[in-house]
Write a protein that binds this DNA or RNA. Structure first.
Lengths: 141, 141, 141, 141
DNA sequence: GTGGTCTAGACCACG
DNA sequence: GTGGTCTAGACCACT
């Protein structure tokens, strides 16, 4: 559909999206972790390499990496390079669940206005969960 | 405990939020409709009145109204002014559900990374649905 | 479709349209003349009556009538009231055709972009012409 | 012989016109596309550059661009900037043809009143179509 | 009074 | 540098 997209590793960006590129990159990497395509300790390309691979600006990659580091998804060693956090991300706490709820509210409100039943909405969520789980099984990479 | 907040009608804005004011306003009005606080045909304040009430610029209100009009939530009637769309918003279609799913994906991915179980996530959604429904019951206004 | 519309005589207004009410009224009356529902010399309701009938402001009707008078579609006698111009509207001149062409250009440009063939576009025009003619035949009112 | 006119690229605005500047700009760009002066993928000046070039406010340009983006004529690409939609605008559907017909009706009605024959009217349309096509032929740019 | 348009200047996020 | 947001003040058309 879209006119130009880049595919490197499993990174898939949409340069026409409203969503900033650096957040797209953050989400793609988090999805990779969720799908177990990226396992604790796995290396990630350096800022330079990633930027060159997917054809974006260094600063953009750096911004994404800094954010991921901040949130505990990755570690940035000056020598070992960038790796997925070996001990996994910190578990969800009440604060996190509150944040999710706050972000979810507008979607649920609009869905109610558009007569989406609670069941249908939950089904969408379940489908998404399945989407992440199915890649996990039998993936011994 | 934010520095500046305004409360008018049921509109509650957070001027410190990253979220643009106009989108906050959009979401608040959609939530009002979802909660049946705003019923089809109900009038909304004029851009000027709303802007004065909540202490923001009229252009910001106008931007929100234009978006809501575009999305079919409100009508701008030459005589009655701004009103909640009398026939309700158009029901969700496949395109809408796809959009929801696309927006939901990052939250679910991160939740999985943070070891939120599918059950817990769904429970959050259900709570949000309850939040909208409870205001509805017994509201014979 | 629309939530509220008024029907008086053959006047049909859409209060939610972008098009100002007074221009809608002008167009409706011109269409009436084109369809021979309104013949030269036929009376039109007074400003007051028309305004009351279709539920709009006096000024709005007056603005429409003044425009129609200016363009030669109607005559406004202080005593005989408002009548369709007995001698018909002045025939199209080069200036008029230029105006039509100027107004038509954007529609044709967009239609070309949207791959509407010249034949299809002309067919639409022909259909509209037919629409006006069919009311004419056999109408001995 | 208007007082103030600006000519940049092929953009030609009439500041004395009733038609809002931003719609004039929209129409000019659509005409450029229709005439193949602007081809899919071609870049458009940034809002600031365009505003400076044609001597209007950048917000006015932005409004036009937003509308064109909304309608699918252009894309706002995070890297390439503003470009003509590479895949062309979506083809006309029934809804679009209805809109055209609705907009055309008043012109045809008035033309009938002014005794313009169907043939003459269609000829005007054909001339406009030719106007757009002639620029296309032999343009191997 | 309303909304629509245009201008203008400012700040910020993004790349 | 870009576009996005917010503010502000002005004028106009419409009702």
């Amino acid at each position: 559909m879209k006119e130009r997209e880049r595919d490197v590793m499993f990174i898939h960006l949409d340069f026409e999206s409203e969503e900033p590129i650096y957040t797209q990159l953050i989400h793609q990497i988090i999805e990779g972790i969720a799908k177990k395509e990226l396992l604790p300790g796995d290396p990630l390309p350096s800022v330079r390499a990633m930027a060159a691979d997917i054809g974006i600006n260094l600063h953009t990659v750096n911004k994404a990496y800094q954010h991921l580091k901040q949130e505990g998804f990755i570690l940035i060693h000056r020598q070992k390079g960038v790796v997925i956090h070996p001990e996994g991300v910190s578990k969800a706490d009440a604060t996190y669940m509150e944040k999710v709820k706050r972000k979810l509210r507008p979607f649920i409100a609009e869905s109610i206005c558009r007569q989406v039943s609670e069941e249908d909405f939950l089904k969408q969520c379940q489908e998404l969960f399945s989407e992440f789980k199915k890649d996990k099984e039998g993936d011994a990479k």
